[in-house]
């Protein structure tokens, strides 16, 4: 190996060592200048070329160039390494305690009663039902008479009523919405009526202002089996698939036949627990075929048109679904309660 080759080798080795041991970009750059700068050691070596023969020039030039390329690539590698390390170091300098409390204000959430309302509307919408509302201060006619509850009928005792004047009451159920729809809409129809209702009743299990939701289907041929199938679908969607539904005979003036609806307790799946009082069943609402007398009031011909209707109390549904143990929490609006209910 010639003297110059040796020198080249030395420069290359020293430069690589220097590049790889530089601790920061500045020191690295200084090293680069030392070897590759205008008066750097490799540049100095080039100056030796003038003394060489043309053949030697060619091979020497090639060798210097190889070293230069190697060193430049080594430099850029080292530079990249250092930059990465520096960024990493700066990130570590910005380290935070991830266990500190979060800073964004909490998002809010729905009231459980309205949450349940939305869920039920969503389920019934899939069967083609559309939502309707109606006035809360309702005419006696719509709240009672049109629903086959004439004045001085004992069925009026079933619903303790707030009176506003001789002809207006706070509606005691959402069923007046049925009448408004029957009077104004085209048949066949499938509607949901929902909203606040009022009864003169206030104790551990009753609120004087609470909410109901009901569905009504009017079509050419409608049977109890259709009603039961519809409610079974609803129960499966709302409380969970596989829960059975059963009907018990009951009485509502606006339906005939009438039934109370029980579903298998969603908590114990029918095995018996405190919610269902060990019976495995819980009562969730009432239903029946639309009483022909209701059609008569709405001037709809029966049996050319037939119908069924069903209704649930939203507070009761919320209590069952979320295991709320005191109905009076619902109108209290304690934010701790509402936060718990928001999922």
């Amino acid at each position: 190996m010639s003297e110059t080759d040796k020198q080249l080798q030395e420069i290359s080795d020293e430069a690589l060592k220097a590049f790889n041991s530089s601790e920061n970009s500045k020191a690295l750059y200084d090293e680069k200048v030392k070897f590759l700068g205008k008066s750097g050691r490799l540049t100095e070596m080039m100056k030796l070329m003038a003394k060489l023969s043309p053949e030697e020039k060619k091979s020497f030039g090639q060798k210097v160039n190889e070293v230069k390329i190697r060193l430049e690539s080594a430099y850029s590698n080292a530079e990249e390494n250092l930059k990465r390390k520096e960024i990493e170091a700066s990130m570590l300098a910005e380290e935070v305690d991830m266990t500190l409390p979060s800073v964004k204000p909490p998002t809010g959430g729905p009231h459980p009663v309205f949450q349940v309302m939305d869920e039920i509307v969503t389920i019934l919408s899939r069967l083609g039902y559309s939502l309707r509302t109606g006035p809360l201060i309702e005419k006696d006619y719509y709240n009672f008479e049109a629903l086959n509850i004439p004045p001085n009928h004992p069925a009026r005792d079933m619903q303790d009523t707030f009176f506003v004047d001789q002809t207006h009451v706070l509606r005691t159920h959402t069923s007046p919405i049925q009448i408004h729809s029957l009077e104004s809409e085209q048949l066949p129809l499938r509607i949901i009526g929902t909203g606040g209702v009022f009864r003169v009743d206030s104790d551990v299990s009753h609120l004087p202002h609470f909410h109901q939701i009901e569905g009504m289907c009017v079509d050419r041929k409608v049977s109890m089996a259709d009603l039961k199938g519809t409610i079974a679908f609803f129960v499966g969607e709302f409380f969970g698939k596989g829960l059975k539904t059963r009907f018990r005979p009951s009485f509502f003036p606006f339906t005939e036949p009438s039934a109370e609806v029980d579903c298998q307790c969603p908590i114990c799946k029918g095995n018996g627990c405190s919610l269902c009082k060990q019976s495995g069943w819980i009562e969730i609402g009432g239903c029946g075929l639309v009483n022909p007398k209701v059609f008569e009031h709405a001037k709809i011909k029966y049996p050319e048109w037939q119908g069924f209707a069903f209704g649930f109390g939203l507070e009761r549904m919320a209590i069952i679904k979320y295991g709320i143990d005191d109905i009076r929490l619902l109108p209290e609006n304690d934010v701790r309660f509402l936060r718990q209910m928001s999922i």
């Binding site: 509307v121 919408s125 069967l127 083609g128 039902y129 559309s130 939502l131 309707r132 509302t133 809409e185 066949p188 129809l189 499938r190 289907c217 079509d219 409608v222 049977s223 109890m224 089996a225 259709d226 039961k228 199938g229 519809t230 079974a232 679908f233 539904t245 009907f247």
Partner: peptide, 17 residues
């Protein structure tokens, strides 16, 4: 004894309130 069946609805559903 009442069986369960889902009735068909031969009409476009109307809009919600």
């Amino acid at each position: 004894l009442i069986p369960e069946s889902l009735p068909v609805f031969a009409k476009s559903p109307t809009a919600h309130d």
